[in-house]
Structure formats: structure tokens, C-alpha cells
Design a protein around this nucleic acid. Structure first.
Lengths: 209, 209
DNA sequence: CCGCGCACTGAGCAAGCGCTTAGCGAACTG
DNA sequence: CAGTTCGCTAAGCGCTTGCTCAGTGCGCGG
């Protein structure tokens, strides 16, 4: 299912483990609204309206508007971490694993650019303890990617003098896809993934064919 | 003058051509507040308070809160465009010019990360016609960078199959510095510029020493 | 010393915000 | 078929928001 069809279906796939149905419709509506206008510019009335409910219905499923953002951030970052974690744990050379990691991570940010925009750019709206929790997930994603790059540097596959700096740059490059990507643009998510995988492999000085 | 000292001085250097003094203090206060909390989460009372004025004083110098953001965006993007434009117009090989452009552009986004964060991530809060004006400045920055990369591809210095895509990636990489950079972090703006210049030159397949 | 201009303030208005509460109707339980 | 539960709504509370306006004090030309 493409991102557009999925959105029309209320994010059935992406938010599959949010139940009951009304709670899922609210998450899906909130993601859309937050991505479009930003967290602070989005009203609870707008979210409830998009989900086809009255404003008060939101508070049956979520204590506050911030809790909605927290749930979205948690689920989204767990998906992102899972993608990166799978790549680091996979078989293959560091070059293969880095290419796969970037391809998957960048194309996820394109395919799910609505969700990605919210979880990457609305973090500061979280309360302090929720923020700390999410930051931990981000640190784990960073550590996974750094592991691959460190492996490549150790085996001599990569030419990376500054491993943390290179990791930061690669992560930053992929994350920022969420900011500029548009479904109406000339590139498909897979094309973005392929382009970025090639760019990053050259960036770390890997031998490419 | 470093960014910290300059902020303490009310952005005297960065906003030098904003007059009178009260208007400059307001711009400077607004940039700080917008960068910290985001446009929509910032109140006019907060901006005026930081500038040492009553809430009403803001409206003597600016018609609306949005106009403040517009002024900031205009000045900031003009600075960014000037940096990129200087690099494209400079003498030298494409490799040298791209290296200089990325070094200057990335380190500007680090040094002025407060301003950069506002002009790069709060754009959507602008009204439609102001948004269109700012978008035009951004397009010109993009065109300048693309010119350098195209030059390098033409002379055979660079290996870039997808020039617009590569341009987008390089720009995205530099812009995103504003999101993660912190003055308390381990890297100085100059170090970020040097790191990024090296990464980007490898990314485009330039021959480096 | 007067009086004008003007940057600025104190007080506050209308609108919109996040969130609460009382109550309703359909669905399930015994 | 009465009683209970539960998802949901209509109405609205208390507060904050962007912004306004009458008035104030200060500097400056005459």
C-alpha cells in the first residue's frame, strides 16, 4: 500500500498496533495535522475534526495533546530504530550493510515523510521526561549506524578519520529527507534511497563498482 | 565577535542594518525565542520582554508577529545566498569552489545556528506571499550550488550522474547543521565546515589530496 | 519656558485555546 | 426487559493569545 492510499485509509498499516479504531484514527489525524502546520499551530479541535469526532472525544483516548505527540514519536522512532538495527545486525561487509542501512533509512523517511517530519522536527514540544525517553531511542539509532561505520573503518573498507562526525552527517542527511520530500516531487522513495546509498558510500570512501 | 558575545550584545553585528535600535533589539529577541520554542509557541509578550519592552511596543516597529518572522527570514536568507553566490562566482576549479562553498555554507549554519534554525524550519508560518518571496531566495541559492556541481560534472572533475539530486543532498546536509549544532557541543563551526567540505568532495567523486 | 512629536506603557478587548463535565443513546449483561 | 457500561457529544470554563488604544513622559525646536 502506498503512503497516499494508506493515509486515505486512516493509516491502517502504519499505526496497526494502535487500538481501538477511534484511537488509531486520532493518531493518524494528528500526524497529518502536526506535519502540515506543526504541533503548536494544530488545535485539538482540528485533530478531532479530521478524525470525524467532537473535540471532547480526543480526551477519552488520550490525556493530553502532548500525549498524542508522545505516542506518535514513540512508535515512529521505534520503526526507525528497527530499520537501522536490522541493517547493523545483518550479514555482509560493512559496505553492503551501510548501503542497505542508508537505502532503507532514507527511503523510509521519504515514504513516511509525514510521520518522519513530526517525529524529527516536533520533538521539542514534548514534556521533559517524554523528551528524554525519545532521545534515548535516537541515541540507539545513532549507535547502530556508528557501529557499521566503525566496522568499515576498522576493516579498512572506509576512509573515515572522524567516525562520530561522519555518523552525524549521514544520519542528518537521511533525516532531512523528511523536510524536503514531497509525494508530488520527481523522485520516488526508492529512488531517494538508491541515490543516497550511493552518495554515502562515496562519502565514506568505500570501494564501489 | 563570536555568536555568544554577539547575542549578549543584542545581535549588533548580524542585524546591523536593522534600525532603529529598538527594532533591532526586537529582531534579535524574536530570533532567540523562535529558535528556542518555535514561532507558534512564542508569544509577543515573550519577544517584547526579552527586548526589555512592554508588549505593545512591538507593534510600533512591526505590524504583526508574522512580519517579524518575515524580516528575519529575508535578512537571513540573503546572507545565506550571498555566501553561496560568492563561492560560485569565485575563481578556481569546481573542486576548489565546491569545497569553499560547503565550508562557508555549513559553518555559517553552525555559527548562526539560532538564525538558521528559524529561517530554515519556521518558513511554513509565513503568509502565502511572504512565503513565495522567501522561496525565491532559496531557489537562487540552490541554483548557485547546482551551477558549481554542474561545472564539475562538465569538466569531469566530479562523478555526478544526478546533478539536481546531488545538489539537493548537499544543500540538505548543510542546512540540517542548524538543527543539531550546539555551541556546547564538541565541534566548532570551522571544524564542521572542514569536515563537511571533505565529505561532500568525496560524495561528488572529486580528486582530493 | 512652552508646546509639539513620538517612542513607549497600562489596561484591556475579542477570539481562540486546551480541557472538563453533565448527560445521552446504543450495546451488552443477567 | 431493567440495569449497567461506555463511547461519544453539547456546552462551556478559565485562561492566554495577538493586537489596540488612550494616555504619559521625555527630548527638542523655537
Amino acid at each position: 500500500m502506498g503512503a497516499e492510499a494508506e493515509r486515505a485509509a486512516g493509516g491502517r498499516e502504519e499505526w496497526a498496533d494502535v487500538t481501538p479504531d477511534a484511537a488509531r484514527r486520532l493518531v493518524s489525524a494528528a500526524v497529518e495535522a502536526f506535519a502540515e502546520r506543526g504541533y503548536h499551530a494544530t488545535t485539538t479541535r482540528d485533530i478531532a475534526g479530521r478524525a470525524g469526532m467532537s473535540p471532547a472525544a480526543l480526551y477519552i483516548h488520550y490525556k493530553t495533546k502532548e500525549e498524542l505527540l508522545y505516542r506518535i514519536s514513540g512508535i515512529g522512532h521505534e520503526q526507525a530504530l528497527r530499520i537501522m538495527g536490522a541493517a547493523v545486525a545483518a550479514e555482509g561487509t560493512a559496505t553492503e550493510r551501510l548501503g542497505d542501512a542508508v537505502r532503507a533509512f532514507a527511503s523510509w523517511h521519504a515514504e513516511h515523510h509525514t510521520t518522519a517530519r513530526v517525529i524529527q522536527y516536533e520533538l521539542q514540544a514534548l514534556g521533559p521526561e517524554h523528551y528524554a525517553e525519545i532521545t534515548d531511542l535516537r541515541r540507539r539509532t545513532d549507535r547502530a549506524l556508528r557501529q557499521i561505520i566503525q566496522d568499515g573503518a576498522d576493516t579498512g573498507e572506509f576512509r573515515a578519520d572522524d567516525v562520530p562526525g561522519t555518523t552525524l552527517a549521514v544520519l542528518s542527511l537521511c533525516v532531512d529527507v523528511a523536510r524536503w520530500f514531497s509525494a508530488d516531487g520527481p523522485r520516488t522513495p526508492d529512488e531517494v534511497g538508491a541515490l543516497y546509498a550511493g552518495l554515502v558510500l562515496r562519502m565514506v570512501g568505500a570501494e564501489t563498482v
